[in-house]
Every structure is written in C-alpha cells, then in structure tokens.
C-alpha cells in the first residue's frame, strides 16, 4: 500500500471518528476514496478508533460492499433478485458475463469493468435493472447493456 494511502486512511479516520458508531462511515469513506479497503487500513482504523484489529476485520468481512482488492474502473452490478428474475435478468446476466468475459466478482483484464451481483436496486417496476457505479439503469436488454457500456466507457475517456 502506498504511503499516501496510509495517510489518507488516517486522515479519514481522524475526521470521522468523533461520530458515534464511526466505523462504517470511515470504512465507506476509505472505499470511496481508495476503491477498496486494503488490509493495511485495518490497523490504522483500529488504532484511531481504539478498537482491536479483530473487531475492525470482523466488520469489514461482514458486509458485501467492502472489498479488499481494488475493482475495475466501472463496477457493474446486475440485479439478481426476484422482480428482475421475472423480467429476464438471467439472460441479461449470462450475456454480460460472456460479453465481458468474466464471472461475478471478477474484473476484466484491462481493469475497465468489475461485475457484481446485487439484490435489488429499488427499481423493480423497471426490471431488469443494473447499476454502473452510482447510476441505475432499468428495463435492461443485452442490446441496451452494450449501449450503456459504450456510454460509460466513452464518458471515462
């Protein structure tokens, strides 16, 4: 982990530690800024909050959102929950995996995309849904999937 990351982690922890129950907000901010929570962050956060490393690790490992490895530039999450299943999310998912050449929890070789399952984006009236980063997309089809990918890839360049 680069030194700057360590400093950033300490800075985040210091800034937020006064909040009651500060651990989640701190971890979220670290992931927001670094894209993931490196294991080296755990002792830093633990020390700032006066928690044990075990306690912090237990929390990091509990939540699906927290990742210990950096993701691709765009994280694509395809909803797997019932409403989207009723509208063909299985087909969409299979297409996405083939199209990107990766499975869930993997990142494309060019580090552009990571693919994750998600269980409900609250967009169930527009199923099937997916998200790229914070943006939600509804009534997805394989066709629209390709368009969205082109769109976000274009934006990021």
């Amino acid at each position: 982990m680069p030194i700057e990351s360590g400093e950033a982690i300490a800075r985040i922890a210091k800034a937020l530690k006064h909040k009651p129950g500060a651990l989640l907000p701190i971890l979220q901010e670290i992931q927001e800024q670094l894209g993931h929570i490196p294991s080296e962050a755990v002792p830093i956060v633990a020390s700032e909050l006066n928690l044990t490393r075990a306690e912090v690790h237990g929390v990091v490992s509990f939540y699906h959102d927290f990742r210990s490895e950096p993701p691709g530039r765009h994280v694509i999450r395809i909803c797997q929950a019932e409403s989207c299943q009723a509208m063909g999310s299985a087909v969409l998912t299979a297409f996405a995996k083939t199209h990107l050449g990766i499975d869930f929890h993997e990142t494309t070789a060019d580090a552009a995309f990571s693919l994750e399952p998600v269980y409900c984006l609250g967009n169930c009236a527009c199923s099937p849904a997916m998200a790229v980063g914070k943006e939600v997309y509804g009534r997805m089809t394989p066709q629209r999937f390709q368009e969205v990918l082109q769109e976000v890839a274009g934006k990021s360049e």
Partner: peptide, 21 residues
C-alpha cells in the same frame, strides 16, 4: 477483555478469526 477474536465473514462462511484472519 482483549477482543482478539472475531467472526470472519458471515452466513455459512462464518469462521472464527484471530485478528485479521
């Protein structure tokens, strides 16, 4: 009162973990 142990992960994957696994 040392809190050196935690449960790592959750659900069926839950396992006892000293420190950070």
């Amino acid at each position: 009162g040392t809190f050196a142990l935690t449960i790592d992960g959750r659900g069926f994957a839950s396992k006892v973990s000293p420190g950070q696994r």
